Amino acid sequence: MAAPFQVPRPDIKFAESLANLPKNLNIAYTTESPVGTPVSEEAKEAVLNAVQVLKAAGFNVEPADAPIDGIALMRSYYVMNAGETATLFANMHLSDQTIKENVEPLTWALAVTGRSITAVQYSQALSTWDSIESDMDEFQQAFDLYLTPTTAHQAPRVDQQLVSDENMAKLIHITDYSPQDQLQLIWDQWLPALTLSPFTQLANISGQPAISLPTYVGKNGLPLGIQFIARKGREDLLLQIGKFFEDTGQFKLKQLS
């Protein structure tokens, strides 16, 4: 199995290849959240607008969802995150009180939750990532690019509460809960943020290169992007598709007053 994270091929000269976008690309697209959460109509419209641009240019574009269990992906990420946060603080040799008083409640909750993560759970998370990597590699044998929204919704207001008061209290008192309930709380408190942005984690975990393009501005003046994911080592193709959208006047940039 190929390594999950690779550097681009040394024979590819990005600057020289920018104008060499292949004409026979097969592109898959989706507007469905991989974790089953709602996707705004404007995020869907951003993707569908891009689909029309691609079809008009002669590319083969068709709807297809990546064969990935997005919930399993994110749960494995939370297990990994908790375990690594616990390891980070264990290596600092600080007291619990010192840690709790100097980090955010979520960081404290992750550190406590991670102490109960077993070697089996950690290894299972790694196996999940290996499976995702393999499944995406197979999926993209048929598709050169995979198009999704970058985010499912526009950016929230800076004062929008993404963790409920109830869950915040639970994070602070995370030691009162069983290991299973701790992991569920990590999921519950992250779900509002995951609802806003459920698409970008796939490339992070599968090790594929991805690019976000600013092609849409909503009625309220806030931007929404589209994301392309390519096969490993095909950063050149992402830069080429980005140049195509820029050259065809599809970048929508609007400064907020």
Rank of each mutant, 00 (worst) to 15 (best):
V53M: 10
L162F: 06
Q154C: 14
L73A: 07
T113M: 03
I117H: 00
A111D: 00
N167R: 11
Y122M: 06
S95N: 02
L147I: 07
L73H: 06
M168I: 11
V120Y: 12
Q140F: 13
N81V: 11
L110I: 03
N91A: 09
M92N: 04
F139G: 04
A119I: 08
A152Y: 03
T87M: 15
H93D: 10
K55F: 05
E104R: 15
A64Q: 05
S134K: 15
L54F: 02
Y77F: 15
I132K: 06
I117S: 03
D69E: 06
Y146A: 04
A119L: 12
Q124M: 13
Q154G: 14
I68G: 00
L88V: 08
N81H: 15
S127H: 11
R115Y: 07
T85S: 03
Q161A: 08
E84R: 02
L94W: 06
T98L: 13
V158Y: 14
L162N: 06
E166T: 11
Q161L: 15
K55W: 05
A57Q: 08
M80S: 13
L88G: 09
I71T: 08
W108M: 00
D69P: 06
A64F: 07
K55H: 02
V61D: 00
T148N: 05
A82E: 02
Y78R: 09
K55A: 07
P156M: 10
L126Q: 14
N102C: 01
M168T: 14
F89R: 01
L162Q: 09
M168G: 14
F59C: 00
L106P: 03
F143L: 03
